[in-house]
């Protein structure tokens, strides 16, 4: 059996859980095994969405775990819960999405078991016959390089799939009924509460960079903090968000939370409008999940221009305001 650990926020599943189930479906088929899902704590057992999404994405069964310590996310408590579930169910492999939480929970479980854990896989081949050697391809350098690796798993293989390495899709036709749900009892020490979330600060109720349908990016070519004003305007016209490159945050022109890249945010918008960005690998790996890219750059040879679907060759300080004016003109048309 392949067990998929569902990432959720107090019972609400997002895209990472759907991606892990989609990746897991292919892996389970290669293993000749059923795919089951696991929801750990924080009210996940009670939500219909968790069962419905698990079933719609191919999980044959849903296991839930609840405990007083699991009132909210906590890496140690989630990791220890996973260890006990593995002990109870003996899955052939455990898979989570290689998001920040997914990798952290798997690392916690692996550390406790002293087992190997392979993060951010893009392709996984289970051992043939009675062998125990898994073949994997995984992400290095945020996706600029791939690593072929082997994993000698003594029991359960612990894996994550790279964030956005698959697009999530439900099974077709949709299952007639939600999957059977079973609770797995766990025994957790009170000390595990030491790393559970204590509080939350909500900064931005609107559209955020990781989920924005449109991102207007600016790089070194913008030249200053003030230079972002027309980009802000374009983002507002398109109900999107402004992003930027590492050069921009290193210069202090924008906060780091706006940075798109290996050490910033991975974006996946419908379109990324990349202006004044050369497209160094650090930035590209954060932007490559975009469905379409429109580059605005003075250099027709720039990496970002070469990789874009469309490009305008020119100075962003002229091109972006002209685009803003054109959008307004078309919207004002009777």
């Amino acid at each position: 059996m392949l067990l998929v650990v569902l990432e959720h926020d107090r019972g609400a599943l997002g895209e990472p859980a759907r991606e892990a189930l989609t990746f897991g479906r292919t892996l389970a088929a290669k293993m000749g095994a059923e795919m089951h899902a696991l929801a750990i704590g924080a009210g996940a057992a009670a939500t219909e969405q968790v069962a419905a999404v698990s079933g719609d994405h191919g999980a044959a069964r849903l296991y839930t775990v609840d405990h007083d310590v699991l009132s909210d996310f906590g890496p140690e408590a989630w990791g220890q819960s996973l260890v006990q579930v593995i002990d109870a169910l003996g899955p052939g492999a455990v898979l989570a999405c290689g998001s920040e939480r997914g990798n952290e929970v798997m690392a916690q479980a692996a550390a406790r078991l002293d087992w190997p854990f392979v993060a951010n896989c893009t392709d996984v081949t289970p051992p043939a016959g009675a062998g125990r050697e898994w073949s994997l391809t995984r992400i290095q350098w945020g996706g600029s390089l791939l690593e072929d690796a082997t994993l000698a798993a003594s029991g359960t293989a612990l894996l994550t799939c790279g964030l956005h390495s698959v697009a999530s899709t439900p099974v077709e036709p949709a299952p007639a009924a939600p999957p059977e749900t079973r609770a797995v009892p766990v025994d957790l020490g009170a000390e595990l509460a030491r790393t559970v979330v204590k509080d939350r600060v909500v900064l931005d109720a609107g559209v955020t960079l990781p989920t924005a349908p449109v991102v207007v990016g600016g790089g070194r070519g913008v030249g200053s903090a003030e230079g972002f004003a027309p980009l802000e305007e374009l983002a507002e016209l398109l109900a999107g968000r402004v992003g930027c490159s590492r050069a921009v945050t290193n210069n202090g022109w924008r906060p780091h939370s706006d940075q798109v890249g290996q050490t910033g945010t991975r974006i996946a918008p419908e379109i990324y409008i990349a202006s004044g960005i050369s497209g160094a690998i650090q930035h590209w790996v954060g932007a490559m999940g975009s469905k379409h890219i429109l580059a605005v750059n003075i250099d027709p040879e720039a990496n970002m221009v070469v990789k874009a679907d469309w490009a305008v060759i020119g100075d962003l300080h002229q091109v972006i305001p002209a685009m803003n004016a054109e959008i307004r003109r078309r919207r004002d048309r009777p």
Binding site: V312, I313, P321, A325
Partner: peptide
């Protein structure tokens, strides 16, 4: 890459 044009004239 489809080059849409050069400079502000490419805005439309």
């Amino acid at each position: 890459t489809v080059i849409l044009g050069a400079g502000p004239d490419a805005a439309p």
